[in-house]
Write a protein that binds this DNA or RNA. Structure first.
Length: 595
DNA sequence: GCCGTTTTCGGCCCGACTGTTTTCAGTCG
């Protein structure tokens, strides 16, 4: 389970405020359908604030500037100002009097909506999860109208699964699971085509459930669904109909949704189930304005119900006068506007990558020696022209950090391997620690000799580390900032960083910023990548591999870059080493002129 | 409560499945 954001020093009000608005939406959801548009509004405001990179107080100079933010109007702007001034929102305090707040979490349990939750409260005086469990145990629930045996059984299961239902998988794990299920689905006779949809197709950093879309003739569907829900990996069947089935997996209680469609509606279904929800709503609204209707079966003329498109996503976007939008961009972050103008970025692809900028060998905490790594990569990644060996510096004692003399020895080993390979393939690098005062833990005369120096923070995770990172940027021999936000997804929140300041410093000093592709890091994260690209920051993608199987992480590093709107031009290691060298020399020259 | 290249008022995405009903409300994605 991924914990709620911790508010460390130097961290923003955003997380707190987003949580409050999310709770307010839940309150209004509980209070009844007459508030349904308020629910949408507060949920929207919550999402907007959670996605901001800067603290909300930056925007909160006055109501009018807050009003410019998407989904924030006069009323919510006032509440933001009130929160910043007093630490409270009166309307929320009042709502908490009206709504049994402990009950709100019940609505997060599968099968519990507002109506059920409210009924339980009013008829059985249930105030929290414990009360509900007691009511079920004592048989009180069965006395209520509308609560049959099946429904109560489902409620019990939902309660049991509550914790797991809240967990999200890392993208890497979800991709593996998803591809395995996809293969099993494709082996069922009658499936003519199938692919993964949902947030997995959009390559979000964490995945809640797995969506599959498949083409199958109507006459085969009953049999296919029956086969699908009885696959060995199925723990429980949540739903199964003519066109749709939902299962829970044995291994990890992950939900998998399958949708069977006709070939002429495949594109519409894929579009719909790929999402995001916000992107879909945007497209549907667009269709509506044109007098059309978009659903998972196609685009239809609203008046005549005549089908206008649906077989492929391409024809639907084309009908809308838009370029086809890559799934990674479908987050309603301006992609629709650019698609209308046919100005979408030409996104980076893995095949243009020319090297990997961070990895570890047996010299520090990696599993293989340098020659083994080099030969493996030349075989499995033939399009790479270089790799940068970046073992740890002395401060990382646990990770077997190298002393100065060790690095000198390693230089000789790299020379030996390159000579054997008859190619200057392995570059001499290091992952240097940024100490708490912003200095580095290796001397300048050694740093100067590396081909590439990545500087990272490995301590002091609760502080604001902006100044520390900027002083690393200011160092003439630092080429890159490694895993810049320092988070471990689901385990450790990012430390505080003023991203505007850091990105400015990176551009000013000619320092690159890393996208670390380790599955639980994905750091820099996608929305910050987008912000960095907008500022003209040069980025790198690194696997930070510690064993041979981890070099494959590059693909999801590329996914993060794509979600951050990167083209080939934004990623330094999609260029030849000559260009990397040029980038590096520019910084040194620039520093010399300055000093 | 938000929003606007038809609108400052009157809209706000849309359909499948379940459980329990005898025609549908609730929930989900």
């Amino acid at each position: 389970m991924i914990p709620a954001p911790l508010l460390g020093s130097g961290e923003s009000h955003n997380a707190k405020l987003a949580a409050i608005f999310h709770q307010m939406a839940a309150c209004y959801r509980y209070l009844g359908t007459e508030h349904r548009f308020r629910v949408i509004a507060y949920d929207g405001a919550s999402r907007t604030i959670a996605a901001l990179n800067d603290d909300i107080s930056v925007y909160a100079t006055d109501i009018a500037s807050l009003d410019k933010l998407k989904g924030i109007g006069e009323s919510i702007a006032e509440k933001i100002m009130e929160f910043l001034a007093t630490g409270k929102i009166k309307t929320f305090e009042k709502l908490k009097q009206e709504v049994p707040v402990e009950l709100l979490e019940l609505m997060d349990i599968n099968g519990f909506g507002p109506a059920t939750t409210r009924l339980l409260h009013e008829k059985l005086l249930i105030n929290n999860r414990d009360d509900l469990v007691a009511a079920i145990e004592s048989g009180k629930l069965a006395s209520l109208k509308g609560f049959g045996a099946k429904r109560i059984e489902n409620m019990k299961r939902g309660l049991k699964l509550f914790k797991e239902a809240h967990s999200r998988m890392l993208l890497w794990d979800a991709l593996k699971t998803g591809e395995a299920i996809l293969q099993q689905l494709l082996s069922i006779p009658g499936i003519r085509k199938a692919e993964l949809a949902g947030s997995l197709r959009r390559r979000k950093e964490t995945i809640g459930d797995i969506d599959l879309i498949a083409i199958a003739d109507k006459k085969n569907r009953k049999r296919i669904v029956a086969r699908f829900i009885s696959l060995p990996l199925v723990d429980r069947v949540l739903a199964s109909g003519e066109t749709k089935a939902s299962i829970l997996l044995k291994d990890n209680s992950v939900q998998v949704d399958l949708r069977l469609v006709n070939d002429y509606e495949y594109g519409a279904a894929l579009l719909y189930f790929t999402g995001s929800k916000e992107h879909n709503i945007r497209l549907r609204t667009w269709a509506r304005e044109k007098g059309w209707k978009l659903n998972e079966y196609g685009v239809f003329d609203a008046a005549s119900d005549k089908m206008l498109a649906g077989a492929t996503e391409e024809e639907i976007y084309k009908l809308f006068g838009m370029s086809w939008i890559p799934p990674e961009l479908r987050e309603e972050r301006g992609e629709v506007e650019l698609a209308i103008k046919h100005e979408l970025p030409d996104l980076l692809t893995e095949s243009v990558m020319r090297g990997d900028m961070q990895m570890h060998s047996t010299w520090s905490d990696g599993a293989e020696d340098i020659e083994t790594i080099a030969r493996f990569i030349q075989k499995d990644y033939p399009y790479y022209e270089y790799i940068v060996m970046t073992d740890h510096s002395p401060s990382e004692r646990i990770a077997g950090g190298l002393q100065v003399e060790d690095f000198i020895k390693q230089f000789a080993e790299i020379d030996r391997v390159n000579k054997k390979l008859k190619l200057d393939f392995v570059k001499k690098g290091a992952e240097v620690d940024i100490l708490s005062d912003g200095s580095l833990d290796l001397p300048d005369d050694l740093l100067e000799r590396f081909d590439w120096v990545t500087a990272s923070i490995h301590s002091g995770f609760t502080k604001d580390n902006t100044e520390r990172l900027i002083s690393a940027c200011n160092h003439p021999f630092v080429n890159c900032i490694g895993h810049p936000c320092g988070r471990l997804i689901g385990k450790r929140e990012p430390y505080g960083v003023d991203w505007d300041k850091l990105f400015d410093a990176a551009v000013r000093t000619g320092t690159a910023i890393e996208i670390n592709a380790q599955p639980n890091r994905l750091d820099l994260k996608d929305d910050l990548v987008k912000a960095a690209v907008a500022k003209g920051v040069m980025l790198t993608i690194s696997t930070d591999a510690h064993s041979l199987d981890q070099y494959a992480f590059m693909s999801q590093g590329v996914s993060v870059a794509r979600r951050g709107w990167c083209t080939h031009e934004n990623i330094l290691n999609s260029y030849s080493w000559k260009q990397v060298e040029k980038f590096r020399q520019q910084k040194r020259k620039h520093r010399k002129v300055e000093s």
